[in-house]
Design a protein around this nucleic acid. Structure first.
Lengths: 158, 158
DNA sequence: GGCGGATACTTAGCACGCTAAAGGTTTGCC
DNA sequence: GGCAAACCTTTAGCGTGCTAAGTATCCGCC
C-alpha cells in the first residue's frame, strides 16, 4: 500500500456514499421521531411550510416519489390531523394539500429539515474541498444522465 | 453568477448525491428484473455465490438490514426455489441459507453485481478526480462518525 | 356537442425496511 | 441439575416505495 495511492480506491468511495446516505436516513428518522413523525412526514411538512399549499403531484415530484406513494403518506398525515386535502376549484382533478394549525406548529417546532443535516456536514469542509466535490459530483451526474439517454431509458423530469 | 463560484453550491452537492443514489437503485432494480429478481434478492444471491452458505445473521449484517427484514426476503426466495434453509447442527439456533441449483444458476447468469454499476461510473472519472473524491468522501465520513460519537448515538459494527 | 387522448389522483397488491415481542437454544453460574 | 441471561430467528404490525389498473376531469379537435 503506497502512502499516496496512485490508484484511487473506488470501492471506498462507493462505501462512503452508501454510508453517508444510510446514516443521513437514520438521523433524519431519529429527528422526526422526536416529534412523533416519520422521515417522510417531516419532509412533507417542511415542503408545505413556506408555501402554504401544494398539489399532490407537485409534492410527489419534490420528494421524488410516485403519486401513489404520496397518496398513502397524505392519508396517514390527514388521519393524524397534520394536513387537509382541498379540491382545486380551477381544475377539479387537482387536490391541494394544506397544513392544519397542528401541522404548522409541528413544522415550525422541528427546525431540522432533512437537507439541513447534510448542509451542516458540508459546511465543515474547506471551501476548496466543497468546490472540488461540487465539480466532481456534477460530472458524475452528467455521466449518469448520458448513460440513461444512451440506453433510451426515459428519465422523468428531474 | 460568477463563472468560478467563490461560494460552492452545497445544495447542488446534496441533490447530486440523492440523484446518484436513487438512480443507482433504479438501475439495480432494472437489472435484477431481467432475471425475475428484486434488487435485494440479487444482492443475496451475490453474497451467497462465493461462500456457498451464510447464516441469516451474517447475511443481515452484510446487506446492512435487520434480521427480521432478511427473514422476509429469504421467505420469498425459498418460496421461489432460489435458496433453502438448513438448521445448523452445531448450534441449533442458527439457520444456514444455501443456494439451490436454480439459485446458483441465476447468480452465475446475472453477472452485474450492484456495486459494479457504481464502479463503472467512477472509472469514467480521471484518476485525479477519483483521488480527490475519495479524499473528500473519506473526510465527510469521518465527520459523520465524529458527530455520532459526540451525540452518543451508538453505531453498530460498520 | 361530443369523442379520444392526456392528466390527476386513488386503489390494490407486492416487496422491503423498521421495532417490539415471542419462541427456541445455548451458556454460565450456583 | 437447574435457572437466568444472552443469543438467533421468526412473527406481527406499521410505514414507504413501486407498478398496474380504475375513476374523474380536462383539453383539443372533428
Amino acid at each position: 500500500m503506497p502512502p499516496k495511492p496512485a490508484e484511487p480506491d473506488l470501492d471506498l468511495i462507493i462505501e462512503s456514499m452508501i454510508f453517508l446516505y444510510s446514516e443521513s436516513r437514520r438521523v433524519t428518522r431519529a429527528v422526526a421521531e422526536q416529534y412523533g413523525l416519520t422521515g417522510s412526514q417531516l419532509l412533507v411538512l417542511k415542503m408545505l411550510e413556506p408555501r402554504g399549499q401544494l398539489s399532490l403531484s407537485e409534492l410527489s415530484s419534490r420528494i421524488r416519489a410516485k403519486n401513489s406513494t404520496v397518496t398513502g403518506i397524505i392519508d396517514r398525515m390527514e388521519r393524524d390531523g397534520l394536513v387537509v386535502r382541498r379540491r382545486s376549484g380551477e381544475d377539479r382533478r387537482v387536490v391541494h394539500i394544506e397544513l392544519t394549525t397542528k401541522g404548522k406548529k409541528l413544522a415550525n417546532d422541528a427546525e431540522a429539515d432533512p437537507k439541513q443535516l447534510y448542509r451542516a456536514l458540508l459546511e465543515e469542509l474547506s471551501p476548496r474541498d466543497a468546490g472540488e466535490l461540487e465539480r466532481i459530483m456534477t460530472k458524475l451526474v452528467s455521466h449518469v444522465r448520458a448513460h440513461l439517454q444512451e440506453r433510451g431509458i426515459a428519465e422523468e423530469s428531474a
